[in-house]
Write a protein that binds this DNA or RNA. Structure first.
Lengths: 155, 155
DNA sequence: TATTGTTATACTCTATAACTATA
DNA sequence: TATAGTTATAGAGTATAACAATA
């Protein structure tokens, strides 16, 4: 699991001292990483990489998306996306359909197998995550949400 | 910048509906990604990958660390770390020094050039980040810290 | 001319396992 | 036997740029 350039978890305490925002930065990274690690651990059995899963979950409940749309949502650049889609196609999970209205376009849709995977794995994963978020009281969830919004707003 | 398996940013709204923890998860990911993107943007000019920068910043203000220690702090596995250190050595930023007390060990230290890079880039990057964290009031920083601690604790 | 997606290239990281040299 | 680090291998993502087909 890769991280930001500044890695407050590895940082030498001597180096970090006297910067009072560092504990906050540290907790932001730790909280995210704890979440991401838990998320990934619920995902071991499915034979997809993170970018591949990202694409499958992005395509779920849509009628297909173009490369451009998928790239915008997942932040995968077009050259890379071609390869990711190739591998998903090899696995039989998605298919390419030419757009009738613009012949430069390709629409990517889940196959029946891909839809099956999505419908099985996505709700399972959501429940897996929900189990942990639900350990926070509603009021704590609200406070965390507000704090995170403020935090995001400064960047 | 890679992310968790569940990517609340790409998720279809129809899919996300009726799970009330989703906004919180979404904000956690967005806040982290906003931070990480800002962090990376302050880092464009330095010719280091994220794992490489991570190692250099980890070695800063130490007398050198063994492969084992670096691996534990940065979460880079030993096989990968050998390659990362090789490339940093090629760039003249670190050097390998055999440990006198245990001849299986290698201590990795910053060279003068590596130390120079660290002493220039690290404080600059910290200031760059501090500028944004400081936009939050002290009380907001404290609240955010508390919320993030609770959030991390559930995972 | 601009846009969509593909291809090509080169590099880095990742995971895994076998290997060496020490302890 | 166990540990520290290296080597080998295979795969996947990344960035970048040139390219073909179409708009």
């Amino acid at each position: 699991m890769r991280q930001s350039v500044i890695n407050p978890l590895a940082m030498n305490p001597k180096t970090a001292a006297k910067q009072d925002f560092i504990p906050l930065m540290r907790e932001l990274v730790r909280a995210y990483q704890a979440f991401a690690a838990y998320d990934a651990s619920g995902y071991r059995d499915v034979d997809l990489t993170v970018p591949q899963a990202d694409v499958v979950f992005t395509l779920g409940n849509t009628d297909g998306l173009t490369f451009k749309e998928i790239g915008e949502k997942t932040l995968i650049t077009k050259g890379t996306l071609t390869g990711v889609i190739d591998r998903l196609e090899d696995k039989g999970l998605v298919s390419r359909v030419p757009c009738p209205e613009d012949r430069r376009c390709m629409r990517v849709t889940l196959t029946d197998e891909g839809r099956g995977l999505f419908e099985k794995e996505f709700p399972r994963q959501i429940q897996y995550l929900k189990a942990r978020f639900d350990r926070l009281a509603k009021s704590e969830q609200r406070e965390a949400l507000e704090s995170l919004k403020k935090l995001r707003a400064v960047f």
